[in-house]
Every structure is written in structure tokens, then in C-alpha cells.
Design a protein around this nucleic acid. Structure first.
Length: 515
RNA sequence: GGUCCGUUCGUCUAGUCAGGUCAGGACGCCAGGUUUUCAUCCUGGUAACAGGGGUUCGAAUCCCCUACGGACUACCA
């Protein structure tokens, strides 16, 4: 009898430390987190490091730091402990061994001594017999070297001699497994198409299949939310729960994130070559010292990044598409998760980030701005930083655009855009600018408001068009036809700097551009 | 090859489970407007139910087939 004393939601994010997380992994973590928060449940970080050969230095720290940047937090895990530890599978070997003994004792699993060569021979001979899908299953296990085909005595002898062995699951022969998935509904598979999966490897480590079932059970995981690549092994996992006599948790298999150019799921190796990062934050490969950019380094705000990946595969069914973390937690629903894979769209990502930059208040933005200025060798007051940020933020798609849109407040233009000059720098332009210069020089009250009045009066007085005056002035100050409000710029830059830039432009813009 | 999963504008998607508004939104793109430039912003437009059979008065929606795509098929997770 299974009595649930509580229906506490407990979910886990269980990466293997084989490198940085890519955005698909972050999304899986995010959905787990949203689900846990919504149900007042617990979010657990478990490290699946049962393959010692693939361990990558620094990957664990990367995972924790990157998720922290995303504001995805854990209640239990390798970094903060909890009542269900240890949370690193490599530290749970004895637990797996105890459980594997249980399966062997009940006849659900068996020792196998076959060497890689022998396995290869088995596969080849099956193929020769016309078997399209050769596998270690009920049809061949009696012919193999294992504790089902050998006598107990022989098995003991082999073990005593230190012969390497694995433990395999004894898959039932002809049974329909009906597995349930929250995203996809019922999935039926005949166990005859399944094989006797290895549960314990020669090195004494469990495989994913064993470790994941044992840990999820022991850690009281209520919902397993993971990538679609696990769907084919769901029937096996159901059989394992049954073999242990445990009730399985609920499952939800998330659609894959696809490569934008066409084929296959996004992989870590896609690196930077796609034109957008695949990692949340920068990753430097410890062996090759190769650097991969992250969303953080590319100027994305974490709020935007999270929103972008959340919408890749989920949608609340309303027309809302910008969500704070709190709003997402409220609106999230596993049943509204998409079945088909999604492709990342860099253009829409840009739009999201622009939106979040607009949402950010000038105070916070000014802090980031001051950091960027420092990188470019400049500094200014917080007050002025706020003022500039207010002026230019609507033009910024990424954090670094704050600099691209405002460098001219700190550096005077040394070059002038040819195209703009050809179009806007007329024969009479120098003369007009000289007159404007004298006018500006005489202005006492150098505020945007007053400058506005003065220049407008000047333009009307001379019966000139705005474009005839303002664009050339802008060229003097910025070097091209770009940038925020001219009058505001002039006030910030100050009279001396304005006059200097006009003089420099007049002296350097070539006469041959005339006409 | 086998097993499983999937398929609505170029992209992300609503609508499917309880068949019944010109298939809705967003990004992009195009056009127009605002603006002293560029960008933003505003308005409008463009564009999709993979194909074929059924069931039904009626199908994007239910059933079957086909095509296409994907995942898995390791002593990797």
C-alpha cells in the first residue's frame, strides 16, 4: 500500500558536469524552477557525474554561477546541502550498490561477464541472421556469459577471480508498458523492443538509468521535468520503478531546442558559430583555452534572457509575452508546453532585450553605464551618467549599445561619414556654420531650452531649412547623422567643446565634397 | 534499419483535449506617419493549418494512410 502523507512538489535539475550548460539546459532548469516556485515546492540541484571520463574541470561551478545570473535558485544541492544528500552521484556509490543487490536478489537484474569483443560478435551474428536491431535482450541472454546462463558456482568463481562484470536489467519479454507524460500523453511500448540495459558498469559506477531512478525515489522527487532526448528511455524507467516496487513520479519531457539553420538539436559544440551565443555566460574551455561568449557578455539582461528562453516551448495561451520571473511563476503550466522543437530567433531576442532595457530604471542603467565607460577609459558623475542614459537608452538593444550611442559625449569625432557629407554638406554649409558658431559663442545661458530658441530664431531669420543647419551641426559634433537630441547634446558637451568641434570639422571636411 | 516523438505565417506561437467568427498575436519584412539626423515610437499591410483519404450538415481540431523532420538505438548523460 502506498500512502502519500503529503503531496509536496519536489523537482530536480540534474546536469552532468561535462562542460557548460547550453540554453536548452538553462530552459530545463528554468521550467523546473518555475514549477517548483508555483507549487511552493523544492528545487534540487543534483550532479550526475557517473561518467568519470567525461568530467570537465570547472563545469560544476559554471552551472551554479550561470544559473545564479539567471536568478534560478535552488533549495537543495551540492553547493548548499539538504536532507537528501549527498547530491553528487559519484558520492552515492554505496547506495546504488545496495539497490542493485536488491534487484539481483529478486531476479530483476543479473551479472554479465561478456567482454566488449564478445558483445561485438553477438551483434554481428545477429545482423548476419537478419536481425535489423541487434541487442542484448531476452532472445540472446541465455547464450551470453552471465548469471542467468552460468551456474551459481561458475559465477562465484568468475567474481572471485576478479573478472570484470556489469549488472544488467532483466527486461520482461512481452509486456506493454504504458508510460504517462504530462506534455505528450500516454506512450505505449512493447518491452520486446527493449534491451537488457546495463545498470552497473565495470568500474562500479551506476549508469544514468539506475542512478536517476534510485535518486529520484530517495530524494522524493515528485515531477521529473527533462529534455525530450530521454523519452525513449521512459519505458525502461517505468520498468525499473516497477522492479523496485516504487511508484514512479510524474514525467514531463520538454521539446528540444533546434539549430536555427535547419537540422538537429542545439549542441554545446555549436559554440559561437551560429551568430548568437549558446551559453548563458562566458565559458573558457580548460583544456583548449578556447573562449565561448555568453548572453551576459553579449549585453543581454538576465530578465530578457530568461523571458526569451521561457517562450521557446511554452506560452500561457494569452497574448502576454513579456514576463517578470514572478509573472512567469504564476502563469507557468506544464500542460501548455509545446510538443514540437523550437528554433531560437536572434531578431526576436534583440527585441526582448531592447524592451527590458527600456524597463530598467536610469539609476541601475547608469551603474552599468559607468562600468562600460571605465572600460573605454572614461569616467563621469553618476548624475551625468543618468542623464545620458535617459537620453540614449531607447536606442540601445544591448548593454554595450549604451556606449555605441554615446561615445561622442566623451570623445570628439576624428572622422566624418562620407555618405552623409556628400548628401548634406553643401557649398554654403561652411558659411552657415560660421555664422551659427558666432551665435553660439555669444550665448550666455547654454541650456538646451535656450539653445533651441536661439537656433530656431537663427534658422527662421536666415530663412533656412532645419535640415540645412541641424544636420551639418550634427556632423560636426558626432561625425555622422546619428545620435540623440542635438540641443541636449550641446548642453551636456558645453560651449567650448562645441566651438572646438565646429572648428575642427570646418578645417577637415574636404572642399571636394562640395555639391 | 528498429523504437518513440513531432508537423499552424520566414521565426516563436494562439486556436486542438469538450469539431461551428474572414485561422488571432508577437518578431521580421514592406508601406505610411511622428522627428533637426539615425534609431525608437505609432498606424496599416504581407504571410500559415505538410499532403491524401475518411467520419460529420460542418474538420486546423476526431480517425487512417503517406510524406517530411527529430530524438533514441554506448559499460554517455
Amino acid at each position: 500500500m502506498f500512502i502519500m502523507t503529503h503531496n509536496q512538489v519536489r523537482v530536480r535539475f540534474a546536469p552532468s558536469p561535462t562542460g557548460p550548460l547550453h540554453i536548452g539546459g538553462v530552459r530545463t532548469a528554468l521550467y523546473n524552477f518555475l514549477f517548483a516556485c508555483q507549487h511552493n515546492g523544492s528545487m534540487i540541484l543534483r550532479i550526475e557525474d557517473t561518467d568519470q571520463n567525461r568530467f570537465v574541470e570547472g563545469a560544476e561551478d559554471y552551472i551554479i554561477d550561470a544559473l545564479k545570473w539567471c536568478k534560478i535558485e535552488f533549495d537543495e544541492g551540492i553547493h548548499q546541502g539538504g536532507n537528501y544528500g549527498p547530491y553528487r552521484q559519484s558520492e552515492r556509490k554505496d547506495i546504488y550498490h545496495r539497490h542493485i543487490q536488491q534487484l539481483i536478489a529478486s531476479g530483476k537484474a543479473y551479472y554479465a561477464f561478456d567482454t566488449p569483443d564478445e558483445l561485438e560478435i553477438m551483434r554481428e551474428s545477429l545482423k548476419a541472421r537478419g536481425e535489423t536491431n541487434p541487442k542484448y535482450d531476452y532472445q540472446v541472454r541465455a547464450e551470453m556469459k552471465n548469471s542467468l546462463s552460468l551456474s551459481g558456482e561458475e559465477v562465484e568463481k568468475l567474481k572471485a577471480a576478479g573478472t570484470p562484470y556489469v549488472v544488467r536489467f532483466k527486461m520482461s519479454e512481452n509486456e506493454i508498458v504504458e508510460a504517462d507524460d504530462i506534455v505528450r500523453g500516454k506512450i505505449k511500448v512493447n518491452t520486446a523492443t527493449l534491451d537488457d540495459k546495463i545498470l552497473l558498469k565495470t568500474d562500479g559506477m551506476p549508469t544514468y538509468h539506475l542512478a536517476n531512478i534510485v535518486d529520484d525515489y530517495l530524494m522524493k522527487i515528485s515531477h521529473v521535468i527533462r529534455g525530450e532526448e530521454w523519452l525513449p528511455s521512459l519505458p525502461l524507467h517505468y520498468m525499473l520503478y516497477e522492479a523496485f516496487g516504487w511508484e514512479p513520479p510524474k514525467f514531463a519531457h520538454l521539446p528540444l531546442l533546434l539549430k536555427p539553420e535547419g537540422k538537429g538539436k542545439l549542441s554545446k559544440r555549436d559554440g559561437d558559430r551560429l551568430g548568437f551565443p549558446v551559453f548563458p555566460t562566458q565559458w573558457i574551455d580548460p583544456k583548449t583555452v578556447e573562449e565561448f561568449n555568453g548572453y551576459r557578455e553579449d549585453g543581454y539582461l538576465p530578465e530578457a534572457f530568461i523571458n526569451i528562453i521561457a517562450m521557446l516551448g511554452w506560452n500561457p495561451g494569452t497574448e502576454q509575452e513579456t514576463f517578470s520571473m514572478q509573472e512567469m511563476i504564476k502563469a507557468f503550466n506544464l500542460e501548455k508546453v509545446q510538443k514540437a522543437g523550437a528554433r531560437f530567433d536572434p531578431e526576436k531576442a534583440k527585441w526582448f532585450n531592447h524592451y527590458y532595457i527600456q524597463q530598467k530604471n536610469n539609476d541601475e542603467l547608469a551603474d552599468s553605464y559607468l562600468t562600460i565607460l571605465k572600460k573605454h577609459g572614461h569616467t563621469t558623475s553618476k548624475q551625468l551618467a543618468k542623464r545620458i542614459v535617459e537620453l540614449i537608452k531607447e536606442r540601445a538593444n544591448f548593454i554595450h549599445d549604451l556606449w555605441n550611442q554615446s561615445w561622442f559625449f566623451f570623445e570628439s569625432p576624428k572622422e566624418f561619414d562620407d555618405k552623409t557629407i556628400k548628401k548634406k554638406w553643401k557649398q554654403d554649409t561652411p558659411e552657415i556654420l560660421k555664422e551659427l558658431r558666432s551665435l553660439l559663442e555669444a550665448v550666455e545661458d547654454f541650456t538646451s531650452e535656450n539653445l533651441q530658441n536661439q537656433t530656431h530664431a537663427f534658422i527662421e531669420d536666415k530663412k533656412l531649412g532645419f535640415g540645412k543647419v541641424m544636420v551639418p551641426l550634427r556632423i560636426c559634433l558626432v561625425g555622422k547623422a546619428a545620435g540623440p537630441d542635438l540641443m541636449e547634446m550641446m548642453e551636456i558637451l558645453g560651449k567650448d567643446e562645441i566651438l572646438k568641434r565646429i572648428d575642427f570639422a570646418l578645417n577637415n571636411i574636404q572642399k571636394e565634397h562640395n555639391n
